[in-house]
């Protein structure tokens, strides 16, 4: 439902997004029936397609040509998909978006080859654009995203980490790819340097806000809404913003510390979810998300007014208020 609502926000992009969807399907077409099935399985699970949307919207601030824009929009979504299929192996996740993950449906090896295949397709696709700068930005982003995930593994189960550790991690894990989507979209559309910079920062701030909300929803949504057990991030040892705030209460701190040292029953998991949900941590985390959201909106103030700016603003507001 929320996904549908979000898609309504950019309904004026529907014809272009339908085209992107078709291109995505073609892009994952493989000579290997197994990789074909696994990639389509992943693609058909859907998603918000937030990265292609930002590529297209950013392109509206330059000379917009869908045939050029799709050359960036499609590979950025593919790169995101490739990272998801590998993330499910890292997190041992059985479910994503309410359906079995590739690793659960097949096995880890098939998930690895599917991710490699999709990444190969993304690079094959985007290298039709002969812009060294674009490739330098994107390759650096890909490296930083990996570094973010490596840090996430290093920081797992460390309840005493600080806010800066968390922000540094989500910047790399999520914000940079959204930021690059905006930057590269504007770049291929030939927007001027100032516009590119504002859009890059807009993407970064919106990405930070988006991830914080995601981390909040891990506690405030139901298993059904999430398509996976609520509190999964914490179960996997990921210390997210609500946890960082909740641990300030000594009683909750002790509960969290103990919980991180053992395997939790379902009842224990639900208890922790309730404790966090009922604490002030959710509101505190929301305030941080709002700060980033306001910064994102501030960047839009520097850009020409028009439909693209209006849609970006609506998406920003929606991200701040989304339920799952």
């Amino acid at each position: 439902m929320e996904k549908v609502k979000m898609k309504l926000l950019y309904s004026d992009l529907k014809p272009e997004l339908d085209l992107i969807e078709k291109e995505l399907e073609q892009a994952v077409d493989s000579e290997s029936p197994l990789l074909n099935d696994a990639s389509l399985h992943l693609l058909q699970a859907g998603g918000k397609r937030i990265r292609p949307v930002f590529v297209l919207l950013a392109g509206k601030f330059g000379t917009y040509n869908i045939d050029v824009m799709k050359q960036v929009a499609v590979p950025l979504e593919l790169i995101h998909m490739a990272s998801l299929v590998h993330d499910d192996v890292i997190d041992d996740s059985e479910m994503r978006r309410g359906q079995l993950t590739v690793k659960a449906e097949w096995n880890n090896s098939v998930a690895m080859y599917t991710g490699d295949f999709i990444l190969g397709r993304a690079l094959e696709y985007i290298t039709d654009i002969d812009s060294p700068r674009l490739h330098q930005v994107l390759s650096q982003t890909m490296i930083e995203v990996c570094r973010g995930e490596i840090i996430q593994i290093e920081d797992k189960y460390k309840l005493d980490q600080n806010l800066r550790d968390y922000l540094r991690r989500i910047k790399r894990k999520t914000a940079l790819l959204i930021s690059s989507s905006c930057e590269l979209g504007a770049m291929v559309a030939g927007a001027d340097e100032k516009t590119i910079a504002h859009l890059r920062r807009f993407g970064y701030f919106i990405g930070m806000s988006f991830q914080i909300i995601d981390d909040i929803l891990d506690f405030t949504s139901s298993d059904e809404e999430l398509g996976k057990p609520a509190g999964s991030d914490f179960i996997q040892g990921n210390i997210t913003l609500p946890i960082l705030y909740a641990r300030n209460n000594p009683e909750i701190y002790r509960l969290l510390k103990d919980s991180l040292q053992k395997e939790l029953t379902d009842a224990e998991r639900l208890h922790i979810v309730k404790v966090i949900r009922d604490s002030s941590a959710i509101d505190d985390a929301k305030k941080v998300s709002e700060k980033y959201l306001n910064k994102a909106l501030g960047e839009l103030d520097h850009l020409p007014k028009g439909q693209a700016s209006k849609t970006m603003r609506k998406i920003a507001f929606f991200i701040g208020k989304r339920k799952f």
Binding site: E31, S32, L35, F117, G120, E124
Partner: peptide, 16 residues
Amino acid sequence: ATAIIKVSEKKASFYS
């Protein structure tokens, strides 16, 4: 990138 695609396809073929 094209070579990565082909190698991944071949590796996957061992599972089918």
